[in-house]
Design a protein around this nucleic acid. Structure first.
Lengths: 337, 337
DNA sequence: CTGAAAGCGCTTACAG
DNA sequence: CTGAAAGCGCTTACAG
């Protein structure tokens, strides 16, 4: 069975295929009676437009690209899900690419997305390298960057106020009376990780808590890295009573390590995470964490992108949307005894 | 800056654009010297082909569609990640669609994928409805269905031996001496859920354990549903000592519910999950579960699909690949005391 | 060995 | 109000 095209429909309805196109797109007036005939033919043949042809002719591909470090990381999985949802509602499908923060893969995906004529791109990267995204504006492809800050020359930017997040997480522990507070970071020198650490340090200062560099261990934003970093942290600081972990996944790894060290949670060790992934509510003890408004971040990202796809976006200034973090107190943090 | 096309390259190299095309695709012999000139021009202008034009001309779009119930479900997130990985290695990008097991959304995505000329589709659906996938073969789009069985008329099929999985999970509990074993199922009447339950029942029979219908509660394959179902189960069967939960996410919800009921894990209640998502190793107690070979399932699915995309697939018989389940024993199950 | 041309399925000026 | 035709960027017979 050959695929039905606009010509088949035209023949069936006895009109030119230009007319069919206009009926489909409601792009010029058509005699009601003719329109009726065309619509009937459309339905009868179960026509669906070939988007590639449409796009080739200069139209939109109705496809957006999403480049993300790794969707098996729960934070990105939830963000990606939301983006896909909202895109779908707006009539866009999404091509997803996991970059693993690998520059080569990233470059590869970028080329692919351009070759496939995506209408726009949402780019999430926690990598520490400078990003070379100019190729998108050069190809007139709008882009929004999420979860890290960057110059507005290139893209719209949406992200959390990470420093503030680090601050309120640490302040919460300080207010509970903790004096020796460790911190498990992400792997990167740039990006959200550093900002959160800055907030942590600022809070320590504000509460007159002494900082030692061995209170910080580097993780990888995954379960395993959180576990390993906690091992080291506890070995180097047996008297620690609280840890601020820079994402929830590592916090779960941290809990495992703490228990292996014979600690009872939360009595012997309070833990604060970051992200508020769905899981954080269901583990035991449930995790005190800093919430990122996933839904809002995703919907603003998509909205900004579509605005620029559909509007004369070259004339509007790029925007930076910064979301406030929110402390969610659960069972994993208690008053220091 | 306008996008560079094959014509620009031809002009730069001083050849016809047919020749450029042939150089790019290595599709006929070109004088080495000419070839050199073309390649230089290609590089100089940083040409990348417009895949939509190529696809329109009858070629492949190098894009596959993946329809999946919900990537915020960790099982599907891991499968999707693997499929994306392997597809990328083979030069395909993937358009992802979350159906939420909603027939309308599913239909919508199917139309979209066809309109976008995907080369093939991987379809995962735990829904209980009969699927209407004939539209893909009608449009000459190969399809492989994962995680549920169906007629080979339409698609290749890859899935786990779910009944066997349910059996060995339950057998493990029986062998540990448990006599009263609950079961928390998925929401569906068809599909993997039922198969696993059959395995559960068969094991009960083999071990002379009495079955009561109130030993089964229906969940939703999510944290929350597992929690709620466990609440009911424990209320109706205070003397229960073990539960077989049909996926890991619900098992984590089950642990939470059990603790709220004052039970100590695993001493008072043994729990077996299903899937072996990464997380199951990191919670406390770590989860005994039935492993699905994600990587293998994904890679076979992609391989079968690409075989049919590239070969004369209409002549080869569709295949059904069934993977064996594997019991992974961790801390959540112990001998009945 | 290489070029000129047809055609994929559309949209959109251009005519009438 | 509607049709004939150009053209989007490619690939691939058809000529030479």
């Amino acid at each position: 069975m050959k695929r039905v095209t606009i010509k088949d429909v035209a023949k069936e309805a006895g009109v030119s295929y230009a007319t069919v196109s206009h009926v489909i797109n409601e792009t010029r007036h058509v005699e009601p009676e003719t329109e009726e005939r065309v619509k009937k033919a459309l339905k009868k043949l179960d026509y669906s437009p070939n988007i590639m042809a449409r796009s080739l002719r200069g139209g939109q591909s109705k496809t957006i690209g999403l480049i993300v470090p790794d969707t098996s990381n729960l934070f990105f999985a939830e963000i990606a899900r939301k983006i896909e949802d909202i895109g779908f509602q707006q009539g866009y499908s999404v091509i997803i690419g996991n970059s693993d923060n690998d520059l080569n893969k990233q470059k590869n995906y970028i080329d692919t997305l351009i070759a496939k004529n995506v209408d726009g791109v949402i780019f999430i990267s926690t990598g520490s390298q400078e990003l070379d995204l100019e190729i998108f504006p050069q190809n007139k492809i709008p882009i929004v960057v999420a979860d890290r800050d960057m110059s507005l020359e290139i893209a719209d930017v949406v992200l959390l106020n990470n420093k503030e997040g680090g601050y309120i997480a640490t302040r919460h522990l300080a207010e509970l009376g903790h004096k020796k507070i460790g911190c498990i970071t992400g792997p990167n020198s740039l990006s959200p990780s550093m900002e959160r650490v800055e907030g942590y340090k600022k809070a320590l200062i504000d509460f007159d808590i002494i900082f030692h560099s061995n209170l910080i261990e580097v993780g990888d934003f995954q379960f395993k890295g959180g576990e390993q970093a906690t091992d080291k942290l506890l070995k180097n600081n047996p008297d620690i009573t609280a840890i601020f972990v820079l994402n929830d996944m590592m916090a779960i790894g941290a809990m495992r390590a703490a228990r292996r060290h014979g600690l009872v949670l939360p009595d012997d060790l309070s833990i604060v995470g970051f992200d508020n992934i769905e899981l954080s509510e269901f583990i035991t003890p449930s995790l005190t964490t800093i919430a990122q408004p996933f839904g809002e971040i995703a919907s603003i990202a998509v909205r900004l992108l579509i605005e620029r796809i559909q509007g004369n976006w070259e004339n509007r200034k790029n925007q930076r949307k910064i979301f406030p973090p929110k402390l969610i107190i659960r069972e994993s943090t208690i008053k220091r005894v």
